[in-house]
Design a binder for these strands. Structure first.
Lengths: 419, 419
DNA sequence: CCATATAGTTCAGATTGAAAACTAATTGGA
DNA sequence: TCCAATTAGTTTTCAATCTGAACTATATGG
């Protein structure tokens, strides 16, 4: 990066505005980097259709010659496989179908307050193995939780061996703010974790891409985007113990300058509202968090599964307290979404987690509230409910690793050539 | 875009997921496109220091050979000029200083509710000519307003001739939602404009880059970023007749999928608040808009300048009504900023327009409110006040055109070679 | 006045995609 | 049965562009 010959800028002391270290210069080789990604992405998007080189050339705008050369590299690295000829009853030489290799995969992992989950996702996005176990992780030491997670991961690794899937890496989602670079959980209030250093890499020794830490709501949003048919722009609302959010803009996750964007739970929905655990007041979470809803609905303490079941039963029985609790949550969620949609110019919402379960009762109040506070901004059609249930988060966590390969295959090729 | 030879994808009817039309493929020539921009941007950033080719090579990571070739093209196009040798009392051949040409400029224009403003900004960002006139534009026909603006522009054009500045294009900011592509003002409630088709190009016939329409708050935010020393990430709050906002993330304007992000004025700050002109209720604008503040402070009707003067006088005289009006505005602005900062992960704010004038009285209430609703999120130091006053918006409007040249000089070179 | 230092240019070499010609594989119809 | 037509994919030639190294240009200081 730095030039060998210690170039000096402006010699007069004080260095008045040296030439800024701008973005990296374009090199001839960057073109191939980009086109490798373009072709790989085209194959990924085309999905089940298994495109031929000629179709990729037409779809990407590259020449057949260029595509052939690029595909050769991708096949050699193992990311792409040829899946035999295909025909459709017309003349001409048949094409070689191409797909993301089903013999390469990533392990998706989720630590949440009440459960642990692991899944094996192949490059094509198929969930090849999936396992969830209840685990009261609140207040448990990270090491202990990681150890429990490790035994779940071992199952996934075993399944991968049986299915002949090579594991490239893993993604681990946790319900809190993370520093991805340093593998730290900066703050996960619902787990009672603060500045915890994790060793996610040790969950998958030897995986070339390591294990990538991520936020639960963000991963769920990405899961919805990539594997749940989410639109290119939407706000994902994660109703786990806390109320989280993930912002998808232009098919990309918006994380903000510090990486902690989407904190929907701490939008102020009533300036005279109750104190919040975050130190503020009137936050959405104080009206629409799981705890707040259970309390307002008079559901006694107990395990999450029990309480949820009781709440759903009460709602089905039209219990006025329960109905009002959910109605209020929907109303305030509407306030938060109206403000968010106006601020970020977003016109679609996907409800996940707890909110997906309650959607039947929540939706009417939410729509009414949106109509009151931001009339015409969000159509009822664009207020969706996640269908991925508990696999959305781990699909998203794994997907981030898969995506990083699709976006930078060149680096992956390099690594696999060295090995 | 489409291939000549009508490539057919999957022939079986129904075309199951044709290969997606992804991003454009990388061509060898893209490298030069990028590096031209890189070098030009380096020169722009280095600003007054007027870097030499060798310094640019060191700063960009390109070789001297590449920089020389790139600079030759930029000089030929007139975007960059050599400004003589410079020395600093050391040995060696002196470098040729390079700068953005001061003989190329862009006209910045602003239509607001109570005034019109025009400025001539050269590529280096110097405001070479500036003129503001009062004009009660509310309810006036767009044609009439554009005509008045035209005579102001004529002054700027004359000034450019005198100063020997060639005008490349213009930027026109209006206080409303615009469709930049189609030169339409979709909605400017405070002007009483709705779906108005403008002809901004006719303001500067013959300017190669035409005239670009933009939103007032967004332009002001960009002005603050480029010419007011704003940080890389901040929320600009524009207190004109309405309350607007501009979101700067990573030194880029965030406009959202539909281009209308930053609508700070219609964030809900109190769910039981009054009806708003937007159809919603409890919006920030109903508490902190100019009208709301003047009303709450019991300032009688009149021109904006008069009312502002009266309000400032009342505040200086410690009039309780005026103090409370501004205090309340600050409090609710704090609610909106707390929510926005949490949602978008922003940690700096710049107050502009009316809010800049009232900053002395507004700031304490605002800080108190931020501390109440989002403790620790925004440091007092990161709550700034714009110093650009009425030139910020037109600087930003012109800057967008300048920036587009810096980001895509290749297209500009092409055009100037054809001419 | 020349050794040294720095700026900038020239030229060979490498990478890469475009364009076009070519080879490969398949079908429909003579 | 076999060949024209059609489509897939490869090979070859060419142009664009950067790097690296050698070279020229221009200054200072002893």
């Amino acid at each position: 990066m730095v030039n060998g010959s210690q170039q000096q800028f402006f010699k007069s002391a004080g260095s008045p505005t040296p030439v800024n270290e701008s973005a990296a210069p374009g090199r001839v080789g960057d073109v191939r980097r980009r086109n490798l990604s373009l072709v790989l992405d085209s194959i990924a998007r085309t999905g089940d259709a298994k495109p031929s080189r000629a179709q990729l050339a037409a779809g990407t705008g590259l020449t057949k010659a260029a595509v052939s050369s690029l595909v050769a590299d991708l096949v050699e690295s193992g990311l792409v496989s040829e899946v035999g000829l295909y025909r459709d009853g017309e003349r001409g030489r048949p094409g070689q179908g191409l797909e993301l290799s089903s013999r390469r995969g990533v392990v998706g992992m989720e630590i949440n307050v009440d459960y642990l989950a692991v899944g094996l996702v192949d490059l094509g996005g198929n969930l090849r193995f999936h396992s969830i176990v209840e685990s009261r992780n609140r207040g448990m030491a990270p090491q202990e939780v990681m150890q429990r997670l490790g035994s779940l991961v071992a199952e996934a690794v075993a399944a991968a061996a049986v299915e002949n899937v090579a594991i490239l890496g893993g993604g681990l989602a946790v319900p809190g703010l993370v520093d991805e670079q340093r593998n730290m959980v900066l703050s996960a209030p619902n787990l009672h974790w603060e500045n915890e250093q994790l060793q996610p890499g040790s969950l998958l020794e030897g995986a070339p891409l390591g294990v990538r830490l991520s936020n639960e709501a963000n991963s769920a949003a990405l899961g919805e985007l990539w594997y749940g048919g989410g639109p290119a722009d939407f706000l994902y609302v994660s109703g786990e113990v806390g109320v989280g959010g993930g912002v998808i803009i232009g098919s990309d996750l918006y994380v903000g300058p510090g990486g902690s964007a989407g904190e929907l739970g701490h939008i102020v929905v009533h300036p005279e509202g109750p104190e919040c655990s975050c130190g503020g007041a009137g936050c959405l979470e104080t009206f629409a968090g799981q705890e707040a809803i259970f309390d307002a609905a008079n559901i006694p303490d107990g395990s999450l599964a029990d309480r949820t079941e009781q709440l759903l039963a009460a709602l089905a029985a039209r219990d006025p307290g329960a109905l009002k609790a959910v109605h209020d949550a929907g109303r305030y969620l509407g306030v938060a979404l109206a403000s968010s949609a106006r601020l970020m110019d977003i016109d679609a919402v996907v409800l996940g987690g707890h909110f997906a379960l309650l959607a039947e009762w929540l939706r009417p109040a939410l729509l009414m509230s949106l109509e009151r506070y931001a009339p015409g901004l969000l159509e009822p059609d664009s207020l969706g409910v996640s269908s991925l249930e508990h696999s959305g988060t781990l699909l998203g966590a794994a997907g981030q690793v898969i995506r990083s390969v699709i976006e930078s295959p060149f680096e992956f090729l390099l690594a696999s050539k060295l090995a």
